[in-house]
Amino acid sequence: MPQSQIATIRKIREYAKEAHELQDDTMDLDPSSTEARLAQTVKELQTRVQEQQAALDKLKSQSNVDLDAAAHASEDPRQKLQQLIAVKDAYTRLKPTATFLPAPGSVLPALLAARTLQQNVRATKQNITSTQAQLTTKEATLRREEGNLHDANLLTQAMETRIERLRAQREDRSQKTPAQLARELIAAKRAQKKDYDTEMQRLGEAMNDFINDYLSGMLAAEELGGPVVGDMLDVEDDTLAVGFTKKGRAKSTKKPVSEKTRQRKIDQIWGKKAAAVEDEEEEPPTEAEAADAEMRQLIENLFATLVGPGGGKAYFQLERDSAASRFLVRAKIAQFHPRDAKKLRLIDFGRELDD
């Protein structure tokens, strides 16, 4: 290894050793002499200020120049040149003068250093707060942009897949005769209709189960003055037989209700059609069964109106304001006429797509 490199490494090691020694040294902060050193420093500064003030007063007394006027540049070029020459001469004379430094035991350097550190700490804290706010905003923007990028990538992928599928279909159709295309289209439509019929049957069965198991009891409770559909989920037949109070609470079931009174109430609310039975040996319908029949008949009438001559614009004329019609409106399945609450129609969700 060259001697120059060896000497450089040795100097680096010596500097590192001295730096560690200076770092390990404790600062002299003797509390007993702090006040005395501060007083001595203040006294030195006051003495220095008095000396500077005396020198300034002496300069004012010996000079006939207006210092206030000389402090500003003159508009006269010649006078301005004289001012610059005077300033240059002053700097030349002051250059060899020794700089004023505090005494070795003065605490002024420590105070100045402490003030500088305090200012730096305050500025750093302010910058940290500002940076944290900016970082939060940038992170939110980054997450939003990442979400937008993810959505754009998904859309791009879906569009590319769709384009490839359309290209393949076009190439496949270009190789087939019109008769083959017609047969395939008819087969596809038949398969689609079959799927729709199967799905409609499944949904119809699910709707029937829902009405029979859950909705009929709640509709009957609302018709009898009880809570609105959805507020009381489990409604028993005994509760419906007894009825509800004016406040919508179930009455006590201690006293049994006669079948005549119960059947008369059913006839008053749902009409005698609900009590009609095909076989005389069958028992009369309960409140839940009457509400079930009314809901099914209402849905059937609304569907018939929807597919009838008026299409989605025609309304079905209601015989009365029932819990079934109110439930369909609250569920966003049907809607009343804007000017007649006795007219109801289903909301045709596919009308815009068909148009």
Score class of each variant (00 low, 15 high):
residue 48 R to W: 10
residue 3 Q to W: 05
residue 252 S to R: 14
residue 142 L to S: 12
residue 353 L to V: 11
residue 162 R to M: 01
residue 52 Q to E: 12
residue 343 K to E: 14
residue 83 Q to V: 01
residue 128 I to Y: 10
residue 191 A to R: 04
residue 38 L to F: 05
residue 217 G to E: 04
residue 346 L to Y: 05
residue 247 K to M: 04
residue 241 A to I: 13
residue 185 L to P: 00
residue 305 T to P: 06
residue 94 L to R: 08
residue 78 R to K: 15
residue 100 F to R: 09
residue 32 S to Y: 02
residue 322 S to E: 05
residue 301 N to I: 03
residue 131 T to S: 09
residue 96 P to K: 09
residue 354 D to E: 13
residue 227 P to I: 10
residue 50 Q to W: 04
residue 343 K to L: 08
residue 151 D to P: 01
residue 315 Y to Q: 08
residue 137 T to N: 04
residue 156 T to R: 07
residue 201 Q to V: 02
residue 171 E to G: 01
residue 40 Q to E: 13
residue 164 E to M: 08
residue 153 N to M: 07
residue 14 E to G: 10
residue 327 F to R: 02
residue 98 A to Y: 07
residue 158 A to L: 00
residue 310 G to V: 12
residue 62 Q to K: 11
residue 300 E to L: 08
residue 288 A to R: 00
residue 91 Y to C: 06
residue 215 L to T: 11
residue 5 Q to Y: 02
residue 263 Q to S: 09
residue 334 A to Q: 02
residue 159 M to K: 12
residue 53 Q to T: 09
residue 82 Q to Y: 11
residue 104 P to S: 09
residue 75 E to V: 03
residue 226 G to M: 02
residue 1 M to N: 08
residue 298 L to V: 12
residue 203 L to I: 12
residue 116 T to A: 14
residue 277 V to D: 05
residue 33 S to I: 02
residue 120 N to C: 04
residue 38 L to N: 02
residue 350 G to I: 02
residue 94 L to Q: 10
residue 264 R to Q: 15
residue 135 L to I: 11
residue 274 A to T: 12
residue 297 Q to N: 13
residue 202 R to T: 10
residue 150 H to K: 06
residue 104 P to A: 04
residue 14 E to V: 05
residue 208 N to M: 10
residue 124 T to S: 11
residue 164 E to G: 07
residue 345 R to Y: 14
residue 224 L to N: 04
residue 341 A to G: 09
residue 70 A to M: 01
residue 29 L to C: 07
residue 32 S to N: 15
residue 306 L to K: 03
residue 287 E to L: 00
residue 10 R to W: 06
residue 16 A to F: 03
residue 213 D to Q: 13
residue 120 N to Y: 03
